[in-house]
Amino acid sequence: MDSVARTEAGGYRDKLLAGAVACLQEKGYARTTARDLVAASGTNLASIGYHFGGKDALLNEAIAGFFDQWTAHVERSLFGAVLGSPREMLERAMIALVDVFEELRPQLILCVEGYPAALREPVLREKMAEAYARARQTGADMMRRAAAQLGVEPPMSPEILVSVLVAIADGLMLQWLLDPASTPDARQVVDALAALSQFIA
C-alpha cells in the first residue's frame, strides 16, 4: 500500500494525471480504459482507485485541471509585468487566451472533446462547471485587482465581463480548431470590441 500511496512530486498521482491527459488526447474520453491509463502512466490499477476513486474521476480531474492551468497562465500574463492602460490589460489577457491556441492545440482538443462527454456524464459536467466557476471568479478577482491598481472602476460587474471574455475565447477556440487562418488574433479581437462599443454607445 505504501507504494500506491506515494504523492510526492513525480509520484503516482502526478503520473496518473499525465497519463490521463495523454490518453484523452490520443483516444478521447469514451474510448480510454483503465488499462490504457495504467500503460500510459506506468502505474497500476490499484493506484487509480486509491488516488481518484476510479477511472472516470481521474479523467474528469485531468480535464478540469487544464481549465485551472489556463486560468493561472492568464493571471501570470496580466500581473507578471508592469500594468498598462485598461486597453493594454485587455490585450494582455486576450493574448493569453487567444494567441496561445497553436501552443495549446492538444489540450484544446482534449477540452472540446470533454463537452459532449459532459452532456452524458453528470459528474464530468459538474467538474467542468466548477472549473468554469473558478475561472470566472479568478478572472473577476483579477479585474478588480487591476482596476484598483490602475485607479479605475470596472464599467460593470466583473463577473459578467469575464463571462463574456471567456465566451469569446471559447468561440474563437472552436473557430481556430476548424480554420486557423480565418480566426482573428488577440489584438484584432480588442479592436473589434472597441469598435463595437463605439457603434452601440
Rank of each mutant, 00 (worst) to 15 (best):
A40E: 01
A192Q: 11
P180N: 08
E88H: 15
S77V: 09
D170N: 14
E8D: 06
G19R: 10
V82H: 08
V74Y: 14
F79V: 10
F66Q: 00
G114L: 07
Y29P: 01
A181I: 01
T7H: 11
G84S: 04
K27M: 12
A46N: 15
G10Q: 13
E153G: 03
A46R: 15
S47T: 11
E91C: 15
Q198A: 14
M143N: 05
Q137N: 02
V189P: 04
G84P: 04
Q69K: 01
R35D: 13
R87V: 00
H73Y: 13
F101V: 02
F101C: 01
M142T: 08
A131I: 01
A22D: 01
K15P: 01
A169V: 02
D56Q: 13
V98I: 09
A147N: 11
G84Y: 13
A131H: 02
I200E: 06
E130Q: 08
G19Y: 05
Y29S: 02
P184A: 04
F67H: 05
R87K: 11
R76Y: 10
S85D: 02
H73K: 00
V100L: 04
L90P: 01
A57K: 15
T33P: 00
A181G: 07
L161E: 03
K127Y: 07
A148D: 13
S3N: 12
A34I: 11
G49R: 13
P86I: 00
R144L: 03
R145H: 06
D141L: 04
E113G: 12
I160E: 00
V4W: 12
S85L: 07
I48R: 00
E61Q: 10
I95A: 04
P122R: 09
P116F: 04
G114M: 05
A9N: 03
A147K: 06
E159F: 15
E103L: 06
D141R: 10
D36S: 00
I95M: 03
V190N: 04
L83V: 12
G19M: 06
L110F: 02
G42F: 12
A64T: 05
L108K: 00
V82I: 07
A34E: 12
G11S: 11
D56C: 06
L119T: 03
A133S: 08
S85V: 00
V4L: 14
S77H: 10
E121T: 03
E126F: 08
K27A: 09
D141V: 05
Q25Y: 06
G84R: 08
H73M: 08
T33M: 02
P116K: 14
D36V: 01
E113Q: 15
L97V: 09
Y132V: 01
G10Y: 15
V74A: 07
L16H: 08
P122E: 02
L97C: 08
L165G: 07
V189M: 04
T32R: 08
A140C: 03
S3T: 14
D14Y: 07
S41I: 06
G28E: 06
G139R: 08
D14R: 05
Q107E: 12
G28S: 05
A34T: 14
D179C: 15
M156G: 15
T33S: 01
L16K: 09
R187S: 13
L78C: 09
L24D: 03
A117S: 05
V189Y: 03
Y132S: 00
L119H: 15
D191H: 09
T183D: 12
D179L: 15
R187Y: 14
P154Y: 09
F199L: 09
D191I: 00
M143Y: 03
F101P: 08
S85G: 05
R92A: 01
L58V: 11
Q69S: 05
